[in-house]
Simulated assay, not measured.
Amino acid sequence: MSVWDAIVGQRPVVDMLSRVAQLSGPSADPGGQHSRRDDLAQSWLICGPPGSGRSNVARAFAAAMDSPDHGLDDEPTKVTRQILSGTHPDVTVLATDKVTIGIDQVRDLIATSEQMPSTAPWRIIIIEDVDRMMERTTNVLLKEIEEPAEHTIWLLCAPSPQDVLPTIRSRTRIVNLAVPTTAAVTAFLKEHTDADRHVAARAARLAEGHIGIARLYATNERVMADRDSLVVGVLGMSRTSDAVMLAEGLIENARGQAQEDIAAQVEAEQRSFRRINGLDEKDRMPPNLRSAYHAIGAKDDVRRRVTRRSRDVLDRALNSVASVYRDVCVLQNNAEDAVGIINLENRTAITELSVRLSRAQAIDRLEHIAVARRRMAGNVAPQLAFEALFSALVV
């Protein structure tokens, strides 16, 4: 399977990046020495909406650049497997579950970028969510992006070029990703999950082009059921007390999901730690490894990760609520044949709501959702943000 086969709905971008990798990859310089080439950008900005797969595109591009087969062979090379799994010594990925990327993290990346690659033709640095950098941090990165070391390629990821400071934007080659079509996501789910055709199609439709969420819906019945309950709850609200109860249930459910997810992650990380250090599940942990092992499940770290994951679940909930009023607007403007309905299972209730609301009221409710999103980004207590939102949505 080609390294590009897991990239969904981005054929023009894949074709372009694949050509770049073939021209500038390992076989481009038989002498084993790379010089800076005018036709090879060494600083890239890969942009796409959440779920479009921008970080996956960056990893695939890195594998195509550094792998002897340019990532094209049906059987992935060892280099490709290492890069995609995050274990290759010459490909560094900076991802964060914090609000911002720290200046010290970027300084460490710059130091790494100056080192010669150990085995591959290129040292490749991938920064996910570069839009989370403060201006001071971005300024530290700027010179390195403008004049990279001859052996280094920078791959930056952000939702859009406008989310990145102009100083960075103007010094990179920009790649814009499309929102994958429902058909493309459905095909991906049928190939890469155990979901049947019906489940895959429904998950793709409800995810609205977000590949990660589509996979989650297709593989986790609880998450799909929680979304169904939320949409029914929003459509059924008639009093402020309904809004308060719906917000309370949503917050509690988000925290429960987050705790389960993080507990599973910690367990997997601890198993990996044991495996790397040659320990079976029942072996006693040697004294010299105990500190590092217990740090994996440290309470403060777990609490922080649960909070961040809860925010992710709530952000997904905002998307689901917005889809209801998006569908209302579609019906009010007789646009169903052109763009379709997301929440087909609730079409009757949404049709009734589209009659009760004016067009201005429907748009106003989408603005209330945007306000709730901004409040969440500003660290307003989730309970208060959703109580205010749901109260404003009551008809």
Rank of each mutant, 00 (worst) to 15 (best):
Q10Y: 02
V13Q: 03
D15Y: 04
L23H: 04
P26V: 08
S27K: 09
Q33S: 02
S35L: 03
R37Q: 05
R37W: 00
R37I: 02
A41S: 10
Q42L: 04
A58N: 01
R59Q: 05
A60R: 02
A63N: 00
A64G: 03
P68E: 10
I83F: 10
S85R: 13
D90C: 09
T92V: 11
A95F: 11
D108N: 14
I125C: 02
M133Q: 06
L156S: 06
S160L: 03
Q162D: 15
R169E: 13
V179F: 02
H192C: 02
D194N: 12
A204F: 05
R215Y: 06
R222P: 03
V231S: 14
M245P: 06
G249N: 13
I262E: 01
E269G: 04
R271G: 08
S272E: 13
F273C: 02
R284S: 14
P286W: 12
R290L: 15
R290S: 14
R290G: 13
R290W: 14
H294L: 12
R305T: 01
D312K: 15
A322D: 11
L331Q: 07
N333A: 10
D337K: 03
I342A: 07
N343P: 07
T348W: 11
S354P: 09
V355A: 09
A362I: 04
A370H: 15
N379K: 07
A381C: 09
